[in-house]
C-alpha cells in the first residue's frame, strides 16, 4: 500500500524534509503501525517519532490516534502538539 506522509514543525526539522511517499509492507494498516514502521528505520525517524515524546497524528487531514485505519493513497501526518492562536 502506498501512502503520503507529511511532517510539520519540529518533527519536520528533525526528519529533514516535509513530505515523502512510502510503500508500506503488508500488515501496516493503522496510523500507529505507520509510525512504528518509520521508527524502525532508525536515525532521524526514530528521534522525531519517538513515542515517549509528545506526538500528534492525523489521517486524511483529521486528528487521528494509533488505531485509526489507513487506506491506499491516504495521507498521514506527524507533528508536535499544536500552538496556534
Amino acid at each position: 500500500m502506498k501512502i503520503d506522509i507529511r511532517y510539520f514543525a519540529g518533527v519536520r526539522e528533525t526528519v529533514g524534509f516535509a513530505h515523502e511517499s512510502v510503500d508500506l509492507p503488508g500488515g501496516v494498516a493503522t496510523v500507529g503501525a505507520v509510525r512504528d514502521f518509520l521508527v524502525a528505520r532508525g536515525g532521524a525517524w526514530a528521534k522525531a517519532l519517538d513515542t515517549r515524546r509528545a506526538l500528534r497524528m492525523a489521517y486524511a487531514q483529521q486528528m487521528a490516534d494509533e488505531s485509526t485505519p489507513i487506506a491506499e493513497a491516504g495521507e498521514v501526518a506527524f507533528f508536535p502538539p499544536v500552538t496556534g492562536g
Binding site: F8, G10, P80, V82, G84, G85
Partner: peptide, 8 residues
C-alpha cells in the same frame, strides 16, 4: 483552536 487547529 489552540488545542486542535494545526498551527505551530
Amino acid at each position: 483552536l489552540k488545542m486542535e487547529a494545526p498551527f505551530w
